[in-house]
Design a protein around this nucleic acid. Sequence first.
RNA 1: GGGCCGCUAGCUCAAUUGGCAGAGCUACGGACUUUUAAUCCGCAGGUUCUGGGUUCGAGUCCCAGGCGGCCCA
Length: 506
Amino acid sequence: MTSETTATSPAPETDDLPEQTRVRREKRERILARGDAAYPVNLPVTHTIAQIREGYGYLGDGEETDDVAGVAGRVVFLRNTGKLCFVTLQDGEGGRLQAMLSQKVVGEEALANFKADVDLGDHLFVHGRIGSSRRGELSVFADEWRMAAKALRPLPVLHKELSEEARVRQRYVDLIARPAARDMVRLRAGVMRSLRENFHRRGFLEVETPMLQTVASGASARPFSTHMNAYDMELFLRIAPELFLKKAVVGGVEKVFEINRNFRNEGADSSHSPEFAMIEAYEAYGDYDTIGALTQDLVQTAANDVLGSTVVTLPDGEEYDLGGEWAQITMYGSLSEAIGEEITPETGVEHLTKLADKAEISLDPKKANHGKLVEELWEHHVGDGLYAPTFVRDFPVETSPLTREHRSISGQVEKWDLYVRGFELGTGYSELVDPVVQRQRFEQQARMAAVGDEDAMPIDEDFLTAMEIAMPPSGGMGMGVDRLLMALTGLGIRETILFPLVKPQG
RNA sequence: GGGCCGCUAGCUCAAUUGGCAGAGCUACGGACUUUUAAUCCGCAGGUUCUGGGUUCGAGUCCCAGGCGGCCCA
């Protein structure tokens, strides 16, 4: 342990600090100088704010009890009227309790110290009888106060919204000041719990697969790379857990899920974060239909568990219904209908390119294969207009190298994307388990990489070896947890992540 | 990657045509024993994101950069 000289050494140079910060440091020094603690190791807390609110909420105006409590909380309001001071304490959930400090009860010196040294934002301990003020505010009639932890920086004003940037950069302040920020933390925890409990009820096992991978595969995305000193080799942060989860299924973990972080070295905007939480699940002897039903239930159960309803209220007040059986459309069918001509897996690249030009979609011609063109056309003509929860089914084979070919339609794969309010919430497959076909798909990806497609999936020999041991027919799904929170609240991704990545301020 | 908008006191925001940089809350000093964003009196607080330039004079105009937001690709 280091010595405690830092606690007793003189205050650091304070001349250039803003006034309010300097003043608070001086108050800390004053508290220490008179022999009190500014940061005591513990305090005789007997009740939480919530316990007092629950236990004594019945008290009428001016009614007092002889019950005594020690309570602590963060000071969010201060109202001093000479010989009687009112202070409102807040707990982590936003619950508030008033304390009243009367000169007659705490004494002249203690009240003077209180007025001199307690600021908005401090953690404060009070001890005293529980009662109700004349105006009916549940209160602790303090016979003693102690500093629980002195705040050296002022809190923002609690009556104005913090700027969006300040909320993200100083989330701890946001959590103190804004109820919606506190709610999101609890909502997210509730969703995680709901998802896990749902999986457990269904007999799925939760596993954790590697974050550091020698080949980043399982999705079409660019990885972050890093370096391992001991082996002097390049490693990648994972872009998806898919290949490892499939290895688990090969080994007999037949119903398996993982909720964990993925990292994609791409842009960041209101619906993309470079690191994001994702749930993936695989079910042996399931397919994309069973896994779709599972996904619908995961979302609807989560909504019911955390909101009590599948009807969610968006920030503009609109009510959006996640309930019922979700619509199912096919990619080729809905695209054909939207543009008024039949598009099939046989439609040539030249014709698709013409259609793309007409729609003013620009694609690098080197990468413009049939599958990419169909998906781009679909997004433009159909996807952008989707609003109600919808499964979009049966994708082109080129863009889904890990998905089984459709059981009855040549050139398509058994994959769905789930769209909610126009954004992609999740995806599901009938998994490709034929190792020979899987190798051909990887080779096709390698050819795409060779012509400059940076998102193309690299060949993973280790994965192919596992597949050659034989994976049972399976359904698999993936869903962004942050996006699920977006679907349940209508908020942007950075509101759903407690500490999203932000660039340092210049 | 491109376009547009923003960055001013601890927080939220003003500042006319380029002419003394302001308000509310907070802070600080004072009054007040039932307040509810307490009230009243008084008084401080600034690298106007950074660096250049134009000008007698720049928060404001020009150039470069940083950070953020929105739209587009």
